[in-house]
Design a protein around this nucleic acid. Sequence first.
DNA 1: CTAGGGTTAG
Length: 720
Amino acid sequence: MLRCLPKVPDFIIPFQSLALPTFHISSVSHCLHKHIELNSPCPTDLSDYIVLLQQCTNRKSLWDLRRTHLHMHKSGFPHLSLGNKLIQSYLKCGSIEDASNLFDEMPQRHIVTWNSMISAYVCHGLSGEAIGLFERMCLENVFADEFTFSIVFKAFSDMGLVHGGRKAHGLLVVLGVEVSDAFVGSGLVDMYAKFGRLRDARLVCDRVVEKDVVLLTALIVGCTQHGENGEALEVFRGMIVEGIKANDFTFSSILIACGVLGDRSGMQIHGLMVKFGYDYVVACRTSLVTMYSKCGSIDDSLKVFERCPGANLVTWTALITGLVQNGREESSLLMFKQMVGKSLSPNAFTLSSVLRACSVLAMYEQGQQIHCIVFKTGLHGERYVGAALIDMYGKCGSIGMARLVFDSLDKRGVVLINSMINSYAQSGYGEGAVELFDHMRKSGIEPNDATFLSVLSACSNAGLVEEGCRIFSSLQRNSKLDPSTDHYACVVDLLGRAGRLEEAENLIKQVEEPDVVLWRTLLSACRIHGKVEMARRVMTRVLELDQGNEGAHVLLSNIFASAGEWSEVSNMKIAMKDMKLKKSPGMSWIKVDREVHTFMAGDPSHPSATEINEELERLREKIESLGYVPDVRFVLQDLNEEEKKRSLYYHSEKIAIAFGLLSNKHNNTCIRIFKNLRVCGDCHNWIKYVSKVSEREIIARDAKRFHHFTDGMCSCGDHW
DNA sequence: CTAGGGTTAG
C-alpha cells in the first residue's frame, strides 16, 4: 500500500521562516526572568537537547520542559526538528495543551506524532477531540496505520458514534490495514460489543489469527454487558482450552457473568483464580464479593472481604451493596460507618446503596444524615443519587422533601421522573403523579415500562379510574412497549376497587397467561365490595395456579367473615392449618429516641402498657364526642358486638400511635408509624379523628403505601 | 518513539 508521506526526516524548517507562535511566549514568558540553570550548560546541538528532554520527561517536570523548549526557541535552534520528541515529552508530563499547540505549528508531522496525539486525547477522555484529529488526518491524506486504528475505535465507542465507527472500520479495510492484528481487533471487538452488536464483535474476533487474552476479554465483557452470560462463560472456557492464560482483567470480568448466572460456576472460577494466583488482586476480589452476593451467599462475600487487606472504595461499595441486596440493611449501614471511619469518601454508588438501605428500613433520620453526606461530597447533582434520595424520602413518607430534591436536579432523565412518580404513587398523590406523567410526555421524554407501572399504581392508589384507563390504553397503543402482567394487575386493581369487577375480570381474560397475582388482586376487590359468589369463582382460579397461596386464603376467609358466613370461615381456618399456612400477625412499630418499639394487637408486654391504655381511653372520649363510631365490619372473628368493639380497640396501629403521642407530648413533630400489613378501615377512620383532636400530623406506612393524616383527613382520600 | 480489555448503582 502506498503511503502518501515519505519517511519524515527529523529536522526541518529553519526557525526564522516560521511565524512566531503566540503560544510559546505567553505560556512560558514567566520563565524568562527566572535565571535557573539548565542541567546542561548552554546546549547547542541536537544530542544535548535530546538528553535534556529525556531528563525533563524522566522527572515529569513540565516546568523544566517548557524552559528547555524556550531555550531552544531563543537560541535559534530549529526546535521543530525535535517536534515529535517534544510532543512525546509534553504528553508524558501531562500537558495535552502544550503538545497540541506545538502539533499545530508543525508543518509536517510523522504518523507517530498523529497517533500519539490521538491516543493522548482518548486517554484523557477527550474522545471528541480524538475523532476530530482522526478526521483531519484523513483530510490531509495521512494514512492511518494499525496503531491509529487500535486506539481510535475506543473514541467512537466513547462518543456513541455507531455510524462513524463503522465508517472507520471501512476505511481500515480500504487502507489494507491488517484486521487480523490483535490490537486492532480488540479495539473493534470492544467497540462493537459496547454498541450491542455482539455478532459483529464475534465476526471480528474470529478473523484475528493469533488471539490473545485482551481480545477475548473484550469479547467476554461485551457478552456480559448485554446479558449473554452463558456465552461469556463459553468464550472463557474456549480460551482456557486453547491455552491462552486468563489474567486479572479476565477474572474480574467473567465473575460478573457467574454472579448473574447464580450457579456454581462462580466457585469454579474462584478456584481457578486462586490457582492462577490472581485472587489477591483487589479488582478480582471486588468481583468475587459481588459474585457471591449475587448468588445469595452474602456470608461468602463477607469472608472474601475480611481477607482483603487492600480493599478500596469499590470493594467496600460492592460489599455494602451486596448486604442491601441480601436484606441485611442494618449491617450495610454499619459497614458504611466503618468505611467512613477509614476515611474513605463514598461515591455515588456507595451513597445510592446506603440510601436504599434507609428507604427499606424507612429510617428517616439516617436518610437525612446521608443526604448531608451527599452534599458534603458534592454528589447532589448525580442522577442515581438523586433517584435514591427521592426514593428514600418517598418511602419515609416525606413527599415534600422528595419533590424538593427532584426540583433541585436539572437533568431530568426518565429514571428520576420514575422515582418521583413512584413516590407520589406510594403516598397516594395520584394527581401529582398523573400531572408529572403528562408533563413528561409534553416535554418529549419517552416513558418506559417502569414509568407506566408507577403512574398506573398511582391511579389505582388514588382511585383515579378514568385517568388510569386513559393511560393504560395509551400504553396498549404504544408500539415500543408491551403491557406486562404487572401493568394489568394495576388496572385490575383500579377497576376492582372502583367496583367495576366484571370489567376487571374481562381484562384478566385478555392476558395470555394470567398469573396468580392478577386473580388475587381481583379477589381483594371482591373483599372490598363483598362479592362472595364472585370470590368463590376467583378462588378456584387462584388455587389452579398456586395451591398454597397464603394471602388468597386470608382474603377469602375475610370475605366470608364480613359476610357473616362463620362456618365457611372456620372451614377455611382448618384448611389453612392442614396446609400449614399461617396468617402473619399484624404488627406496628414506631421509633422514639433512637429506639424502635414494636406492638402486636392486644399485646400487654410493653413497659408503658398502663399509660398507653389511659391514653387510648382519653383519645376514645375525645373522638367519640366528634362522632367516631367503631366499625365492627372489620372484625373478622365471630364475637358479640361488645367483644368486637374491644378487639378493634387494641389493634397494633392504635397502640403505636397512642404511645407516640405519649412519648413526645411536648413537641409537635409528626408521628410516623409503620405496619407490616395493611391498615384496617376502622383504624384508618380512627387515625383521621386522632389527627384532628391531637392536632398532629400522622404518617402511617402500611405494607403497600403511605397515609398522611392531617386535621381529620387522609392523603389517600379513603382509597386504598 | 505511537496501540487494545476489568471491578461498585436504579
